[in-house]
Amino acid sequence: MKIVGINEKECTMCGACETTCSTFYYKEDDRLKSAIQVEEVEASPGVAIHVCNQCGKCIEVCPVEAITRTKKGIVTINKKTCIGCFNCVGVCPTDTMFWHEELVEPFKCISCARCTKECPTEAIFMEEVS
């Protein structure tokens, strides 16, 4: 499957990925509504990029089976089924199942690749993993 690959050394924290994601999915430029989030950290290289690696740990804790894996291997949330319990947020090993206080349902990266196209430094890119 194709996931968003990360090369944090190249990241300039320009925010293009976050803007692209939140603008496309939530029609507003709010990095906290982006399914990829960049954070300044102390540890080298000083940047952490949080984006789902499609591990699927969230699937098994969803009480209403709203989270499933597509044929292409991508983990998606059916927002009509989701009842907003955030169990998936609590269990996510990479902290990339995001939630926002204005939104009922959590959200995550579905490997649409839009952000990678906007990244000026190739700090994020699509990569094939098994």
């Binding site: 907003g84 319990c85 955030f86 169990n87 947020v89 609590g90 269990v91 939630w99 206080e101 204005e102």
Partner: peptide, 16 residues
């Protein structure tokens, strides 16, 4: 609702 969500996420993470 946002206060409930914050409190809920906090304890859900704690449980995990």
């Amino acid at each position: 609702p946002s206060k409930i969500a914050k409190t809920g996420v906090k304890i859900t993470r704690e449980i995990n």
